[in-house]
Amino acid sequence: MSATDPQRPEPPGEPVQKAEKAKAKGPAEIIQVSTIARRFYLDGRSKVEIADEFGLSRFKVARALDIARESGIVRISIQLPAQIDADLSDRVRAAYGLDRAIVVAGSDDPAQTHRQLGSVAADLLGEIVEEGDVLGLAWGRTINVMGAELTRLAPCTTVQLGGVFSHRTGDEGSVETVRRAAQLSGGTAYPIYAPLIVPDATTARALREDPGIASALSRFALLTKAVVAIGGWDEQSSTVYQSLGPRLREEYRALGVRAEISGRLFDAEGASVRTDLEDRLIGVSADQLRAVPEVIAVAGGPGKAEAVAVMLRSGLVSTMVTDAATARTLVG
């Protein structure tokens, strides 16, 4: 019997490998293949369970599933919410060595981009916050949107990471965000009823000794997760920048400042820049944030790409939530 003899049997135990792309041969096989596929993909049955049900070997069950995919009986697609870009998310994560990155589509309308970022950040917190966490929340327009979008949160303690911007209408939103998160989780809230930036170091020291404020500040060492906003160093993308006079703005720029988180300043390489502003702030320090196991930054929109890149280079951020336009700039 020659090697090409059609009567030549296959070696014992060797599965037939010919016609890998073959379709089901007839209506009976089509029904069996589709039923096996339904059991596996829709009912969650194991191959062993299916083999027992149909009196087949596990190999034949696996082959039936292959035929179901190859013939188009089963079509597998991966669908994400329209606003999330999985490819860009993974590229940003890999480029900056993050634990995770989430990139939303964004919009030509900055307000719509902020709403997308806040909504996704709210879903993320609902997913990753665990019972017993100490969650820190900074001020930020997008973070305030996140607070309003929260629908679930595990029982946790919620701490405000910095004071409010008293010169801006509506900045009580940071306090309200902390209180809403605590109400939703059933945990304790530690708000800070004070400005983020005060006129001088003496005033700052006095405020830090206030019992209510001191109680919040004492929780910074216990933080397990923190959500922060990122500001650039310009009029459009930083409320801290807007809070200072022209002289200090330019003085700090000359020192290399390119980004800020809660008033803590950073240069283009992501290194902290020490200024006299440090002594006038009521809020979490850069060193305290570095000690937090998970820091989630939520930032995007026009003009934020440079500042976001700075903070990702700093190593302070472990999770980034941003928009597609910013992400494309980050990864080139």
Rank of each mutant, 00 (worst) to 15 (best):
68 A>I: 05
60 K>R: 11
68 A>G: 08
73 I>S: 03
125 L>P: 01
62 A>C: 09
122 A>E: 02
103 V>N: 01
92 V>C: 00
115 R>N: 12
64 A>I: 03
65 L>A: 07
60 K>A: 09
107 S>C: 07
99 D>G: 14
58 R>D: 08
77 S>N: 08
123 D>R: 15
110 P>Y: 10
60 K>C: 01
71 S>N: 06
92 V>H: 00
72 G>A: 05
109 D>M: 07
81 P>V: 10
62 A>K: 14
93 R>L: 10
105 A>N: 11
59 F>R: 12
115 R>A: 13
66 D>Y: 02
66 D>G: 04
100 R>P: 02
103 V>C: 02
95 A>S: 15
81 P>A: 13
69 R>A: 09
107 S>M: 04
101 A>R: 03
85 D>Y: 04
101 A>V: 09
128 I>G: 01
115 R>H: 10
128 I>Q: 03
127 E>N: 13
94 A>H: 11
80 L>Q: 09
89 S>M: 02
73 I>C: 01
62 A>P: 07
64 A>Y: 09
118 G>M: 02
103 V>H: 00
101 A>Y: 03
106 G>N: 05
111 A>N: 11
79 Q>M: 10
91 R>K: 15
78 I>G: 07
59 F>D: 12
78 I>T: 11
90 D>T: 12
66 D>K: 10
75 R>D: 08
114 H>C: 11
104 V>D: 01
79 Q>S: 12
116 Q>D: 07
75 R>L: 09
72 G>D: 06
86 A>D: 13
61 V>D: 00
58 R>G: 05
61 V>Y: 01
95 A>F: 02
127 E>C: 09
78 I>E: 13
99 D>R: 15
64 A>W: 06
111 A>M: 12
70 E>W: 04
97 G>I: 08
85 D>A: 10
95 A>W: 00
92 V>L: 01
104 V>G: 01
107 S>D: 14
86 A>V: 11
79 Q>I: 13
99 D>S: 15
93 R>M: 11
118 G>W: 00
87 D>H: 12
71 S>G: 10
102 I>K: 00
82 A>M: 08
84 I>K: 09
58 R>T: 13
86 A>H: 13
108 D>M: 12
99 D>W: 06
72 G>W: 04
105 A>D: 12
104 V>Y: 00
77 S>K: 11
93 R>K: 15
110 P>R: 07
127 E>W: 10
117 L>F: 02
90 D>P: 03
115 R>G: 03
107 S>P: 02
99 D>Y: 08
88 L>R: 02
121 A>N: 08
97 G>V: 09
93 R>H: 07
99 D>T: 14
126 G>H: 03
110 P>I: 10
124 L>W: 07
95 A>H: 05
72 G>V: 06
101 A>E: 04
116 Q>M: 15
76 I>C: 07
69 R>Q: 11
120 V>I: 14
